[in-house]
Design a protein around this nucleic acid. Structure first.
Lengths: 400, 400
DNA sequence: GCTTAGTTGGTTGTCACAACATACTAATTG
DNA sequence: CAATTAGTATGTTGTGACAACCAACTAAGC
C-alpha cells in the first residue's frame, strides 16, 4: 500500500528532535553551536530542541570545551542513564537475555538452556521469569525501563508485534507483544534475528553511518538482514532476506537443503558445512564428535585439516556473497552469528572469492567484515531496536 | 553518509502538497472533502493545498458529482495539460525520443538509428537535434516543458546528472545534465534504464501502489530496477541491480559471461539465449539469420522449435528469479525490455519455475508479470521520472 | 595588571507561516 | 422546511527563522 503521510507542527518537532538526537548519538560530544551549524537549524531552534531532549533525560551536559578563542562551549552527549533496555533472544535451544543502558553497554546478562521439545507456553513462561529477574536488576540500579525487545529466528509483523512463523521453533502466529506487554506493562518490540543484528551494527557496530549494507547471519542457515537506503528492508510479508537459497557452482557435490531444493548456497557456507568438511577429513583418521568450537580450537593449534575446512567454507561463502554484492552494491557486508567464532580464519577467503566473482567496479566499493559482536549480534540487536526507536521518535519518551 | 535532514514550514507544505497531489494521481477523481477524509488533513488545509496545486496547473476541476444527498462535490483530477515531458532513451544503436503529457500519454515519438562506432560528440549532437524537433512539437501544442529526461544503459550519479559508465556505449563520466541544460535551458534528469522502467511501472504500469517490486530489464543482459520500501534502491555507487551474475544450476553447459565468469544466470535467460537455443535446433535443418522478432513469428506460426527455445529460456529465467524472490519477498516481478515481445510465451514457464524453486510461503506472495510497455518501458520511464519528481515536489513547478 | 577588541556560545523576543478548530455559507435531497 | 454534505472564513496554536542581545572567554596593547 502506498502512503500519503501528512505533516503538521508536531511532525516538524519530531523530525528536528530526532535529527539533533541522532547527530549527538553519532558525533558526540557536541555543543549547541556545532549542532546548529551541522543541521542547518537556527541557533535558537537548537537551544529549544536541546532543552526538550534534556527534559526527557535522553542527553546530558557533560563538560566544557575551552579550546580556542571565544566563549567555551557546553558539550552535550547521549545520556547512558536515560534508562535500561531489556533484550531477549529466543533461540532454538536457549533463551538469552541482556540488560543494556541507552548507549548499548551491557549491565547484566544471562543465558539459559531451553528444551526445543517443550511447549510454547513453557518456553514463554521461562522467558517471563528471566524478564522479571532482569527488571529487578534494572530497578535496583534506579533506571527506568525504556523497552523490552525480542529477537526471533523467524518472520515477524512489526505493527502488531506478532511472530508469524519461526520454522526452527515451530511457532506460528504468536502475539508476542500482546502477551508480554500485558504481563509486564512494558513497551514491547519484536524483530527478526538477522534484522536485529543489522540494527546493532548500524547503531553500535561496524556499520555506523552506513546507508546500505548487508548483515549475513550464519548459523543453521544463512539469513540476511538487508539495510538499504538507510532503513531495514523487509519485503511484502516480512520474509525478505532469505539469501541462502540460490544455487552456486562452487563444488561438484549437491546436498539437499531445508528449502527442498538441491545445492543451495547455504549448504556450502553455513556452520554445519564446516563441521561436515572437517568430518570428511577426519573419517579416515579418527572418529569424534565435532563442534564449531572444537574446530576453532584445532585451527588455533595449527591443525591444517581444521584450517582447510574453514577456508573452503569461506570460499563458498564468498562465491554466494559475490552475487549479493552485484545485486546490492553495498558499502559493506558483515558476517555474524554463530559462525563468527571462526571469523578470523574465514574472512580472507571470503574477501578473496568476493573479489574474484563479483564485478570489479562493484567489488572495489564493498568491504567485508566480521561482526564485532560475534554470536551476540542478535541479542545486542534486540536492545538496539529500542534505541533505534527512541532515536527516531524521541517523543516516545516522556518529558519530566 | 547518514542524513540528519531537518524540517521547517516549507517542508510541511511540500509534504502535504505532495500527499494531496499523489492521492489525486492515484485515485482521481476526488473532491476536496474526500481528500480531507483520506489524508486526515483538515478541510480548510485541503482547500488551501488544492488552490495551490490549481495555481500550478498541476490539477484541474473536472466536473460535479451530484450523487446522493448534500451539496455536490467539485471533482479534481490531474491536469494532463500541466505540461509536456521529453524522454530520451540512448540505446547502443538507436536514439528514441518521446513527448508525453503529464499523465504519460504519448503525444509524439521518433526513433533514429545511431552508429555505435560514432563519436560521443556526434551521438550527442544527433540527440540534440531530436530534442529540438520535439521541443518544437511541444511548443506548437502550447504546452510548457516540464523536463527533459534521459534513460541510459549504465551507471548514473543523480545529483549531478552524470553518466558514470555505460559499458555498451563505452561512455565514461559524461556530464549529461550539464551539456543539455546549457544547450536547452530545460530541467534535465538522468537515470539508468532499468530504474527508469521501474518508475514507469510504478506510476503508469502494473506496479501502481506497490511498495516492493523488481523490474527485470532483459535484453543484452539482465538488469534489475529494484523498487524497495517505496523507492528506488541504487546502492553505494549506483551499481545496484546487477542481478544477472549469479550462477544457476539449470543446465550442464556453461558459457562465458561478459562479467568474466562462467555460467552466469543471464547467459541462460537473456535475449541472445533464445536465439542461441533456436540456432542449435535449426543447425541440423537449415541456416538463416535469426532475431527475436523472427522467432516470435515462428512461434506464432506454431513452430515447436521456436516455442521450445523460448520455453527453455523462460524456465532458466524463473530459476534465477526464484533466488531473487527469496531475497526480496517482492509483491511483483515485472519482466520487460526487448525480450518482452515473446513475453506471452515466456510467462507461464517463468511462473512455473519461480514457484518450483523459491520458498513456498514467499512464492505465494509474489506475482510475475510481463511489462505492458514492452520494449518501450525505459523510454516511457524517462518521462515517468519527471512526473515522479513533480509528484514528490510539486513546488518545483511555479505558481502563476 | 588592566583595558579593550574580537570571537564564539547561547538566549530572548518578534515575526511569518502552516495546520487546526470552529463557525459559517452553499447547494443539494426529501 | 430539516437534514446532509461540500467547501470557506476567521481566529488560535505551535513551530522555526531571524536579529538583537547577553555571556564568557582569548589576545593584544599599554
Amino acid at each position: 500500500m502506498k502512503s500519503f503521510d501528512t505533516a503538521d507542527h508536531a511532525f516538524i518537532r519530531e523530525v528536528n528532535l530526532s535529527s539533533v538526537l541522532r547527530l549527538i548519538h553519532s558525533a558526540a560530544p557536541l555543543s549547541r553551536a556545532r549542532l546548529a551549524a551541522e543541521t542547518g537549524l537556527n541557533k535558537s531552534t537548537v537551544s529549544s530542541l536541546v532543552e526538550d531532549l534534556l527534559d526527557r533525560s535522553l542527553i546530558h551536559e557533560t563538560g566544557i570545551n575551552s579550546i580556542g578563542t571565544g566563549r567555551p562551549a557546553m558539550l552535550l552527549e547521549i545520556n547512558p542513564q536515560a534508562g535500561g533496555i531489556i533484550g531477549v533472544e529466543l533461540g532454538v535451544d536457549f533463551i538469552a537475555i541482556v540488560l543494556t543502558d541507552f548507549v548499548g553497554e551491557i549491565l547484566f546478562r544471562k543465558k539459559v538452556i531451553a528444551d526445543p521439545a517443550a511447549s510454547q507456553m513453557k518456553t514463554l513462561n521461562q522467558s517471563f521469569r528471566l524478564i522479571e529477574e532482569t527488571v529487578g536488576v534494572c530497578r535496583a540500579k534506579g533506571y527506568r525501563i525504556l523497552g523490552l525487545s525480542f529477537s526471533i529466528p523467524g518472520t515477524v509483523e512489526l505493527n502488531e508485534g506478532l511472530l508469524i512463523f519461526a520454522p526452527n521453533l515451530n511457532w506460528h502466529n504468536t502475539p508476542i507483544r500482546k502477551i508480554f506487554s500485558e504481563r509486564t506493562g512494558l513497551k514491547v518490540f519484536v524483530e527478526n534475528d538477522a534484522n536485529a543484528a543489522a540494527i546493532a551494527e548500524h547503531l553500535f557496530g561496524v556499520a555506523q553511518k552506513l546507508n546500505d549494507f548487508i548483515f549475513v547471519f550464519a548459523g543453521v542457515g544463512l539469513g540476511g538482514g538487508l539495510f538499504l537506503n538507510g532503513q531495514l528492508y523487509r519485503g511484502r510479508g516480512g520474509y525478505a532476506g532469505e539469501i541462502g537459497h540460490t544455487s552456486i557452482m562452487a563444488e561438484p557435490f549437491r546436498l539437499p537443503c531445508r528449502c527442498g531444493n538441491l545445492g543451495c548456497w547455504e549448504t556450502y557456507a553455513n556452520q554445519e558445512s564446516i563441521i561436515r568438511r572437517m568430518q570428511a577429513r577426519l573419517d579416515e583418521k579418527q572418529d569424534r564428535t565435532l563442534s564449531i568450537a572444537s574446530i576453532k580450537q584445532a585451527a588455533d593449534g595449527g591443525d591444517q585439516d581444521a584450517i582447510d575446512s574453514i577456508s573452503e567454507a569461506g570460499t563458498a561463502m564468498g562465491i554466494g556473497l559475490a552475487g549479493l554484492v552485484n545485486i546490492f552494491n553495498p558499502e559493506r557486508v558483515i558476517i555474524g552469528g554463530p559462525i563468527s567464532v571462526v571469523g578470523d580464519y574465514l574472512l580472507p577467503f571470503i574477501q578473496k572469492s568476493v573479489n574474484k566473482y563479483s564485478m570489479a567496479e562493484i567489488a572495489v566499493q564493498t568491504e567485508v567484515s566480521i561482526s564485532e559482536f560475534g554470536p551476540d549480534a542478535s541479542l545486542i540487536g534486540a536492545a538496539a531496536i529500542v534505541v533505534d526507536d527512541i532515536l527516531k521518535n524521541p517523543t516516545h519518551i516522556e518529558r519530566r
